[in-house]
Each structure stands twice: as C-alpha cells, then as structure tokens.
Design a protein around this nucleic acid. Structure first.
Length: 554
RNA sequence: GCGCCUGUAGCUCAGUUGGAUAGAGCAACGGACUUCUAAUCCGUAGGCCGCAGGUUCGAAUCCUGCCAGGCGUACCA
C-alpha cells in the first residue's frame, strides 16, 4: 500500500512538471510514512517540504500542484489534504485495504518475506560460550537474539548459517582439566588444596565422579599433565553435550559447531600469522609478536604470540574469521556479550588487514541481564559457582516466556529478568497476551466448525462486509508487517517484531471484545473468518521467527 | 584518565532512522463476563524526553560540552 501511494506521488510530481506547474524536473526520494496521529490520515509525505528549496516555491504551493495532478485509477484514496507547513496527508478508502487479506491468505507462511537479501551468504555466530561450565541467563539472551536475528534475515532472503564457535583450546580448558583432576584426586582420598582460580561449581565434582566411575583410579598413575589433559577433554565434551541439550531445550539449533582446535590442527593460525608477517604488519617486541592493529584504527597494538611462545586467543580468532570468509560468507555477524566491547576495534582491524571491507563484519553487542526474583537481584558468578543456569530458568518460567522476554528490549539496553514476573500471566508478561490471540482464534475456528460453518474460503462478496473501524484497523496493522520485517532485518533488531506482535494482538483483542465473528449472517461470518484467519497466520509467522510457539489452546 | 552502552509518565520500556498535539504495559482510580476463552476489553489520571548550548522550515532523534548509572580498558578467553 505504501509503495502504491509512493508511485502515485512520483507520477503526480512528474506530470506537474510536464504541465509547467513545477519549474524543476528534479524529484527527490519520496518518503511516505504512517503518521502517529489518526487525524493525519493513513499515509503522509513531506515531499513538498523537501522540494521547497529545489523548486524555489512555498511548500504548500508545491503540495497544491502535486495534488492537482494526482491520478488514482484504482480509487485507493478517499481524501487528500495539505496540513501544517506542507505535509500531504492521504486517507485511504477503507475497502481498498481488503486485498491485503487475500495477499496474506495466499502467501500464508511466506507473507511479508521481502527478498532484500537476494541470497547473499550471511553467517550469524552466537552463544559460543566456553565449554567450561553450563549456560547461564546471559547466554540465553545472546541465544534468543542471535537465533531471532538469523531467522529474520533468512526470512528476508539471506542465505543464513547459524554457527557456534567452540573454544576448545587454550588456558581456560586447561584450567577446567586441572579443576576436575583436583576433585578427582579428592574423591580418591587425597588431600588437595583447591586454588581460587579453578572452577568452583558443583558440576566440577559431578564431572570428577563421572570420570572416576569410568576410569577408576587409573589417572593417578599417569604423568600429571597427561591426566589433566584427559580430564580437560572429558569434561569439555561432557559440558558441551550439556550446552547442546540446553540449547535444544531452548529451541535453538545450530547449522555448524566450529572447533577452535581445528584451526590449529589445520595450520590456519600459522598461515595467517605468516601472511601478516609478509605484509609487514607484525613485529617483535619484548619477546612477543605484535600485530599492528593501530594501523587499522585500534588504540594500540595487540599481542598474537606471547613471549612464552603460546599464541593468544586473538590469534586464533583472526584465523577463525578469515576462515569464515574463505567459506564464502559475504557478511559475518558476531553476537557478543557487552563485556567484550573493547575487543571490537582489534577484530575490525583484523578483518580489514585480511582484506575485507568493514561493512562485511558486524558485532551485535548484547547488554547484560540482571536476574531478579520479585525485585531482588540474584548473585551471579561462574567462578564461585553461584549462578542460575539457563536450564533452571527455562524449567521455571518456560521456554516461550524466556525467549519472548529476552526480545522485549533493544539488545543495547540492559535487561532486568524477573523470574516472578516471567511466570505471571498478566500484561507485565506479554508473551501470553500474544499467544492468547492465536489460541482464541483457534477456538473460534473450532466452534465455527462445530456449528457447521463451511470451510473458510475466499469470497469477495463476504470480504466486502468487512467495514467496521476495528476491522479496518486490524487490516492496517496486518499490512504493516512486511515493512516491520524489512526494518528488523536491515537493522538486525528483532525486538521490532516483538513490539509489532504486541500491537497486532492489542488490535485483535479490541476487535474481539466489540464484535462477534460467528454471527448468523453467513456472509458477514465468512468475511470475518477470513479476517481472523489472516491475523492468526501473521501472529504465528511472527512468533515462529522469534522462536516462540503459537498454541491452539491455552 | 580514556572508550562503549544507557538516561523518555511513579515503575518497566517503545518511539517507523529529522516530522505535525511524545506512545504502550504495570501500578492508581472508575466501568464491562447468562455471549466465539475475562490470560481480555473500555475509560480517567499521569511528561522540562538527564542538563546546557548548537545545526534548520522542524530535534526525544544529528553535533559539542557537562551530569548520573552500567560495562570495559591483559603477553585472559
């Protein structure tokens, strides 16, 4: 609809120039928006204001000229007016909205899928939590955001891959192995001192017990380093299995689980360092190798090989990102926790040094989650082992509520996640508000079938009976969905879809309370059934993109 | 110190990328269930968009400087 209005304006402006009512042929990009205030019509354009300096005419005069040359063969427009400093407001004829319903019912699950991606290969990497402990709520937010962003991009025509990067190499893994081995020795009756830098959580003891069941006392006879590495491998695999299970429970499925260790095994890290050396952007200082990230906008240079010969996490991360582009991804998005924001400039430097454009790399920085219970903050520390795991949260409040809440804020805002509110079935917790629409419509459909209503099929005559203001409002809301999705995809902001669904739900509940769908008049009934079926489809489509279910009963 | 994020109704937050009289939910107050699910709806009230300048036809939105909170500032990952 917006596009149709836009075309009418462009054509009218062109004609106005041909007839000599506008001196310049220069027509700027036409912006059409939906005004906030209902009194300002369904659509509004500021073109006359923008053209004022080009045409050297008063905005209202320009608006006059454009309206005079408006041709509307489809009779979409009921009324136009010039308002304020020179806005042109368009009032769309109510019945002109009806075809939107047809469009939705025909397109079904594909409604709103503008092909803005055109098959571009796009990778979204998210969660990527170290396999040193279970996922907590912060990871849950990253998972919900990453998954929804990927879904929305895929829906809008990008070829999207979801990836999890496994940090199965380096010091943290060794610390994990050491932690487990110490607990293992404890279980074997040895007295050990458990250092503060080791992982304190109870799950470490469980892992030690598991390995003891499997190996008995066998590890005690081995050289300590071998035993630690065996514990590390065992524990990381086990924890990773747990992470996979948690994510599955959360409804998140990855296309690829990528191992950091595989980069070392395949020589990719050495390869990229050699390449940088050849470019002269690596130098030696104080026994370490430094990458000149400051040449690419970072505030200072960064170490890639430490004085003790170990490579840094950054080094393998460079190789990792190069590998993404080698795999053919034209755009790469990383979803990180906000505590990693200082890492962005050096990563961007690395991307550029590898010969890629900055526009090919984006970071979605998800702000922290404050976990509360009835307003009281809950302590969270992985080290100390006092945290609420994602699994606990899902078990307590349910997957749908958790996912929806994670997407009810812009990811750049810190989020208060209150377990008590998440369980409530009120408007403080809007996931049920939206799902309720789906269930209500399903209920009406069941009732309709019971009462012998025919299979719902398109009927022009019946749809013509859709004239109530609440019905037209509902269709207008449905018509906005494609625009919302496109905006959500371009900005990679899934919360726009969340808010849209709440608005659509509100429009439906208002309608439902005022008008009856299953009336005695067969034509009216049929028209309304078509209307609510369209609403149900859009609600289901939107919830699916967010990873939330659309129940038929509640 | 420097960098990133945030600051909008009593509370939690949106605000269509610079548009007209700034919007929701919760909480408060008053109404609507013999009706397709009341997990709902309708109404009332609530604002110096952190503060001060600037840019222009027009600013919550862009620029500069302050103030407050959070996070970061490793040869950790």
């Amino acid at each position: 609809m917006k596009q149709k209005i836009k075309n009418l304006i462009i054509n009218a402006a062109g004609r106005a120039h041909q007839k000599g009512d506008l001196p310049s042929a220069d027509i700027p990009e036409v912006e059409v928006e939906e005004p906030r205030a209902e009194a300002h019509g369904d659509f509004s354009t500021n073109i006359a204001l923008v053209m004022a300096s080009i045409q050297k005419m008063a905005p209202r005069k320009i608006a006059d000229a454009i309206i005079a040359h408006l041709q509307d063969p489809q009779e979409l427009i009921a009324k136009t007016e010039i308002a304020g400093p020179g806005f042109i407001n368009f009032f769309v004829h109510p019945t002109a909205w009806h075809p939107v319903l047809r469009e939705i019912l025909d397109a079904d699950t594909a409604y709103g899928a503008a092909d803005i991606g055109q098959g571009q290969k796009f990778q979204v990497e998210f969660v990527s939590s170290n396999p040193t402990g279970p996922l907590h709520v912060g990871h849950g937010r990253g998972a919900a955001v990453g998954d929804a962003v990927a879904n929305i991009l895929a829906f809008c025509g990008y070829a999207v891959q979801k990836e999890y990067y496994i940090n199965d190499s380096g010091r943290q893994i060794r610390t994990l192995g050491r932690s487990v081995f110490l607990r293992y020795r404890e279980l074997s009756g040895q007295k050990v001192e458990f250092p503060a830098e080791c992982y304190q959580g109870a799950y470490i003891r469980d892992l030690a017990a598991d390995i003891k069941t499997q190996k008995g006392d066998g590890l005690l006879g081995q050289p300590e380093e071998d035993a630690i590495m065996e514990c590390a491998r065992f524990a990381a695999d086990k924890i990773l299995d747990g992470i996979r299970d948690d994510l599955k429970l959360f409804g998140v499925e990855f296309d690829c689980w990528f191992s950091e260790q595989s980069l070392y095994d395949g020589g990719r890290v050495d390869e990229i360092l050699k390449h940088f050396r050849k470019q002269g952007i690596i130098y030696e200082k104080e026994g370490a190798l430094w990458f000149k990230t400051s040449d690419f906008g970072d505030e200072k240079d960064r170490v890639v090989v430490k004085a003790n010969g170990e490579t840094t996490y950054f080094a393998s991360d460079i190789a990792y990102h190069q590998d993404k582009y080698d795999r053919g991804f034209e755009r790469v998005v990383d979803v990180w926790g906000a505590d990693h924001h200082g890492y962005i400039p050096r990563m961007k430097a690395a991307i550029e040094a590898c010969g890629h454009r900055r526009g090919q790399f984006d970071v979605i920085l998800v702000q922290l989650v404050n976990l509360l219970r009835a307003g009281e903050p809950m302590a969270m520390s992985t080290r100390a082992g006092e945290f609420e795991t994602l699994r606990d949260v899902i078990n307590e409040v349910g997957r749908d509520a958790a996912r929806f809440i994670f997407l009810t804020r812009h990811y750049e805002s810190t989020l208060d996640f209150d377990l008590e509110i998440a369980k409530q079935k009120t408007n403080d917790n809007p996931v049920y508000y939206v799902q309720y629409v789906h269930a209500r419509i399903a209920s009406i459909m069941r009732k309709g079938t019971e009462q012998g209503a025919d299979e719902i099929s398109w009927n022009d005559q019946a749809v013509a009976h859709i004239t109530e203001p609440e019905e037209i409002d509902l269709i207008k809301a449905l018509a906005r969905y494609p625009d919302i999705l496109a905006g959500s995809a371009k900005s990679m902001e899934p919360h726009r879809v969340t808010y849209y669904l709440m608005e659509l739900a509100s429009a439906f509940h208002t309608y439902y309370n005022k008008h009856r769908v299953l009336t005695d008049d067969a034509l009216v009934r049929c028209g309304r059934l078509n209307l609510i079926l369209a609403v149900q489809k859009v609600i289901r489509n939107g919830l699916t993109l967010l990873g939330v279910s659309a129940p038929d009963r509640m």
